[in-house]
Amino acid sequence: MKAAVVLFPGSNREQDAVRALREAAGIKAQIVWHAQTELPEGTDLVVLPGGFSYGDYLRCGAIAGRAHIMDAVRAHAARGGYVLGICNGFQILCEGGLLPGVLMRNRDLRFICKMQHLRVEHTKSLFTRAYQPHQIIKVAIAHGEGNYVADDETLKRLEGDGRVAFRYCDVRGHVGGDANPNGSMHDIAGIYSEKYNVLGMMPHPENLIDPLVGGIDGRAMFAGLTALSA
């Protein structure tokens, strides 16, 4: 299993991703600079980390989504390679055309930084296979633009194909209403690509791998990736 974590100017969670891969999955990840045109040979998983690439100028993820390395990431994904975009990484995936829709300003205009419950929609993907179906997990969110918006046709396709990965919910697992922190359509916190090999999500599972920082509900996502080590 080889993992690459892409570093853009303004990324700031890349070491969190590297640590989560190492400590929860035993995977040694390589940091790749955005101006490179190729991924390290044999890369199985690309992680686009959280942060504020290019200072969120123009639109969040817009400039990073068109960086040189993204051509290689698109080719990797088209070959069936795994891609995980967290927070700003999710915004980059949408702007870069790897996932449909767009992440708009939070409904209440505030930057939200808090713990949030999510419902794991299903466990058929590599990223969620170590969770239980409809398991309620608690992870951190920290974003100003996490309000997922897509047209009706796209939403219908995502729902019909089981491509919603996580939804915002409350501690009891009730989805919607006040449990939705940012106004996302269909309470979407994360979605998959058509082949489930690309996952974009606003919450931060990579920050919940150590009981010292308040929980380990993010560990299972990285544990699921260990299948790639074989």
């Binding site: 123009l58 639109r59 817009a62 400039i63 068109r66 702007e95 449909p100 829709g101 767009v102 708009m104 918006v149 897509a150 047209d151």
Partner: peptide, 9 residues
Amino acid sequence: EKLLANTVV
């Protein structure tokens, strides 16, 4: 088309 607008929205 390439950068200035996100034609989704």
